[in-house]
Every structure is written in C-alpha cells, then in structure tokens.
Amino acid sequence: MSAVLPDRHFLYVLRLADSNLVLAQRLGELIGHAPALEEDLGIANVALDLLGQARLLLAHAGVLEGRGRDEDMLAFLRAEHEFLNATLTEQPNGDFGDTIARQFLYDSWQIELYGQLAQSADPTLAAIAAKALKETRYHLRYSAGWLVRLGDGTGESHARAHAALERLWPHTVELCDPDDIDAAMFAAGIGADLATVRRGWDRRIDETLAEATLERPATPPWRWYGKRGEHGEYLGRLLAEMQVLQRSHPGASW
C-alpha cells in the first residue's frame, strides 16, 4: 500500500465518494414527489444509504489527502471540474423510468465493485465497502424489481423504460473501463479489478433485462468520463444548489 502515490489513492476514494454523493443528491430531489408513498420511502432509504456511504468515503479521502479537508469542505467547497463522480449519477431524475434505470445500472455496478473492495488492502476502504455492500444488495433488489415491473408492465411503461436505458447507456461506458488510477489501485491491492467487475455487471444486467423483457442498448463510442472530471451541463447546477449556503456564508458553522 505504501508504494502507491498518495494522490492516486485519494482520487480513487474521492471518485467513489462523489458518485454516491451526487446520486444521493439527485434522489433527495425526489423525496415527497415520488409516484406513490411507498416509493417516497424507498427512494429516501436509498438516498440515505448512499449519503451515509459518501460521508464515510469523503472523510477517508480527506485523511488520505492530508490537507485537513473534512467531508463538508470536500462536498461544498470544490468546483465542478474537481468532482469525479461517474456522469451516470448526475443525470436528471427524468420520469420514474429514468430514475429506476439509472439506479439499476449503478447498483449493479456498485454491488460488483464493493464486493471486491470489501477485500481491499486499505482497511478503512474495506470496512466501508463491507458495510455498504449490505445496503447495496437491498438497493439492487429495489431497482431491479422496479425495472422488471416497468419493462414487463404496460406498453407505456415498457417504452419509457426502454427509452431511459437508451438515454443512460453511454454513461455506463466509464464504469468498467480502467484508467491509470484504476490500474494502479488494483495493482496495489487497494482497488477493484474492473475486468472482473465488468463480467459480473454484464451478467446482472443481462439477467434482469431478460426478465424485464427489455433489450440491452448498443454501446456507442463514448470518451467523456466523469471520473476524470469531464461532466455534461447538469452537474454545475446540481452543485450550485447543493453548495449555496456554504458558498454564500463563508466560514459559518451550521
């Protein structure tokens, strides 16, 4: 573990934290506006878990960085290009089909990823992943269950779920495509092997899509990766809203 550049280790954990934080923020927009009361409660559960994981990961990232930044400084005082979340997570809630498809694609990835990270040579990361994994299993049951209901529900719900998958699919490209940070962290025994994650992810996606009677979209060429700080136009607004109080009252305690 000591052989890796601390910078990469910090960025690796930060990526994990940011994806969870941004997705929790998106889900938080929905609480009170879901299609049924049970879904308000279910979405709030997932959002709370993701936010809890993000806080642990941010705190850990802050320690790894060693510049005294805590979870709130990292969440509220970084600029858009410094956020390293997967672009999948910043996609808007859209209709419930979009929300569920986004969640399903993410949960299927997270469960594979965290399964490996639970064995990480970084004991703090391993502990966070092991705890998160239990929550992720529940999230995946929720999102896969809904995707099946929507895909194999009415003509309208099938069409909406299909459109959502098509829309979101390009944003799945970066999830299992390793870059130098992923490679270095895997080599150091800290990070996951994304080739293995991809096989597990593929299998889960194919199984659930078959049950949902939905087709797997074709993968387009896609080179804009949120984990490198390359975002579309949605993230800036999400952050502007999230950060407003910290930005407008510098140094205040809340």
Binding site: A34, P35, A36, E39, D95, F96, R149, L150, G153, T154, E156, S157, R160
Partner: peptide, 8 residues
C-alpha cells in the same frame, strides 16, 4: 406523473 408507474 406516477399514474403510469402504478398502472405498470
């Protein structure tokens, strides 16, 4: 907006 979801 949730109607189609509940119907599904």
């Amino acid at each position: 907006q949730g109607r189609w979801v509940r119907e599904a």
